[in-house]
Simulated assay, not measured.
Amino acid sequence: MINYYDILEVHYEVSTDELKRSFRTLIKKYHPDIHGQNKLWAESKTKTIIQAYKTLSNSTSREHYDKRYKHLLYTYSKHKPREKTETTAATGAVQEHVRTIFTDLLNGHIHHAIKNHERLLKDYAGVDFFSSLNKRDSIDCLFLLAEAYEKLDKFDMAISLYEFILEKGKGNTHRSHLLHEVKERIRNIYCRHLARRAAPEKALGYYEKVLRLKLYKNENAFIHKKIAECYLTLKAYENALRHLNIALSLKPNLQGAHKLKTKLKQHIPDFAL
C-alpha cells in the first residue's frame, strides 16, 4: 500500500487547507519542465502526487483509504521488532544523511550529494535508503544518485545502483517506464563505455549482462553482433558465427553484418555468404 500521507509530506490528521498547500508546493517542486533530463522521473512523481491528492482531498475516498491505512499501521506496529536504544542515534544520523543527499540531488548539487553518499558508506555499514525514505522516494533517490555517478564517469557505482533499482522494481507495473529507462542506461554504460575500453574477454562479460536485460529484438541483435566481433578478435570463429547467425535471425538487415560475414569467410571456408 502506498502511503499517500508520506507522498504529500503531511501528517495523518492534516486539514483540507494544509493538504492543498502541500499539494501545490510539491507540484511546483516536481514539475517535469524544471527537471530536464529527469523529465520521465518527474512525470511519474507528479502523477503519484496527483493520485494521492485526489484520494485524500475527497472525504469519501479518504475515509476508505484511512481504514486501510490504520489497519496497515496496526499490523506494522504489532510485528515491528523493538529497536535497540544504542542504535537510535546512529539510525537518526543515517536518515538525516539520506534526506540531505536526496535534497541535494533534487536541487542538482550532484558533487555534494556524492560526497555525502561516499562519506555515509564509509561511516555506516549496510546503509538502507528504504529505512530512511518511503519506497517511492528511495527509488527516486537511488535513480538520481546513479545518474550523478554516471555523469561523473563513475560507471561501476552507477551500474551497481541501477541494477539494484531494477531488482527492487521487479513486478512493479506502475513504474515500468522508469525501469525501462534504467535498462537503457545500464545498456549504454556497458556498451558505450565499459565494453569499448575493455579487452575482448572482458567485453564479452559485459555484453552477456546486457542480454540478460531482455531488451527489444533489434537491441539484442546488435549485442549478438558485438559478441560475434569479440569472438572474431579472439579467433574463436565458430562462436563468432553462432552469434552472428542469432543476430541475423533477430534482424536480417543488421548494419555491419555483411562486413563481419566477409571476415568470417576467410577463416571458415565452407561458410556461405
Rank of each mutant, 00 (worst) to 15 (best):
R99F: 03
S61E: 13
T87D: 15
D104G: 02
D33L: 12
F102I: 00
L40N: 15
L72C: 01
S131R: 12
R24E: 15
I49R: 04
R62N: 06
K135W: 10
W41Y: 10
S132R: 06
L106N: 13
D33S: 15
H64R: 11
T60E: 11
L106M: 12
L105F: 05
H111L: 03
K115Y: 00
H64T: 09
I50E: 08
L26E: 00
R82F: 08
Y53W: 03
A93W: 06
F129N: 10
K29S: 01
T103G: 05
T91L: 13
I114M: 06
R68M: 15
H79A: 14
H64V: 10
S57V: 06
N38C: 12
L105Q: 03
K135D: 15
T46M: 09
D128V: 04
F23H: 07
K78Y: 09
N38Q: 15
D123L: 07
I114L: 01
K80W: 01
Y124C: 03
T103R: 09
A113C: 00
D123M: 04
Y30M: 05
G108S: 06
K45A: 08
G126N: 15
F23G: 03
G108W: 02
R119F: 04
I101M: 11
K39R: 13
R136Q: 14
H35S: 09
A42I: 07
Q37G: 08
T60N: 06
L73V: 07
P81E: 08
K70F: 05
L19F: 03
P32T: 04
H64W: 03
F130A: 11
V98C: 08
R21H: 08
E18K: 11
N107E: 15
H35M: 13
E83D: 15
I101L: 11
L106C: 10
A113E: 02
I27N: 00
S22E: 07
E118N: 02
K135C: 04
E63R: 15
G36Q: 10
K80F: 03
Y69V: 08
A113Q: 02
K45F: 12
H79G: 14
S61V: 12
N107S: 15
T75C: 00
S61C: 10
I50H: 05
K20D: 05
T75N: 07
S44Q: 12
D123N: 09
N134W: 07
R62S: 11
A93F: 06
H117S: 01
P81D: 07
A113K: 00
K67G: 07
F129S: 10
I34D: 06
Y74K: 12
Y53G: 00
N58P: 05
T88A: 11
E83K: 14
K29V: 02
N134Y: 11
S77G: 01
T103H: 05
F130M: 12
P32H: 01
F23M: 03
E86W: 07
S131H: 11
P32E: 01
N116S: 01
H117C: 02
Y124E: 04
Y30C: 04
F102H: 09
L40D: 13
P32K: 02
T85H: 11
E43F: 09
V127C: 14
L56T: 05
S132H: 07
P81A: 08
